[in-house]
Design a protein around this nucleic acid. Sequence first.
DNA 1: AATCGACTCAACCGCGTACTG
DNA 2: CCAGTACGCGGTTGAGTCGAT
Length: 318
Amino acid sequence: MGRAPCCDKASVKRGPWSPEEDELLRSYVRSHGTGGNWIALPQKAGLNRCGKSCRLRWLNYLRPDIKHGGYTDQEDRIICSLYNSIGSRWSIIASKLPGRTDNDVKNYWNTKLKKKAMAMHHHHQPPPPQQQHYHHHHHHRVAGGGARVTLVSPPPAPQSQCASMQPSPASASSSGGDACSFGAAAMYSPSPSTQQAPQAATLAVAGYTSVATAAAAAAVAAQRSPLDELICQVPPPPTTTAADCWASGVTLDDVFLPELVGAGEFPNGDLFGGFGPLLQDRSSMELSACYFPNAAAAEMWPAATDIVKPAGLCHSLT
DNA sequence: AATCGACTCAACCGCGTACTG
DNA sequence: CCAGTACGCGGTTGAGTCGAT
């Protein structure tokens, strides 16, 4: 016994929307809102469409704040970073890009950005299995934007060595933008003799954990652009085990945060930057630790009273 | 001008989850 | 607690467009 279809496909119009249909839907939603009931909406709006189709049309095309095309380098970097960090969670990624929809971001990634990434990756090494940040055995997807942060155990085996974002060659794209490669962020610890960054803990979000290079953390400390430093350039010290790497990673997002904050992508005080939506329910979180890009951000944390804070220690990377 | 292949992106599909009675 | 329903999401499809030949 299968699921009942959301509407009778034989009796509703399908395929591309006409301007008249668009206007019907637009004007109805303007004056009545969606009413939280997409199934009933088409009949009320005078549309011979499936409610699901109406919802998609509104969300992906008719909403007044939608942007199409013209992705900026900054948006490219955000997409790459978050893709590296959390995988194909397009709705989350899109939520960090004002005016972008999950469908649009997904299409942009699949048709353009991924190719940039592939091209970039050939400069480094054969592609690792995709989405290495996904540890499905820990994956508890939380629908509706709810957050559940859990500490994750180390992966069963070392997966990849490099994470990556780097400036593309000038000729790599018409926009001259950056691209990122696939694969997990580097999980190397710096060798003891060269360790500059503080010991970092892993921030696990909804079962996903991203870790970047400790070298990148050091780059943050040195006030350089972390995006330029997210490439693993040195092999791991022989004594470094996967578990060591896993436990000592710095979250990619932590490293990425300074640039985002600096670019005004996130409001002051949004100390978790790109994971804002996931971390809305901060009261239910338990962090092993968290890191802020600089002392000022770390100092803001205890002073911030307008958000619910997770349990856990927070430190500055500087 | 015609053809063909590559590319784009709007739309669809089916699944997992939340919600509701 | 359970079953039915609706929503939201990510993967996939295919019609339309564009550029090369």
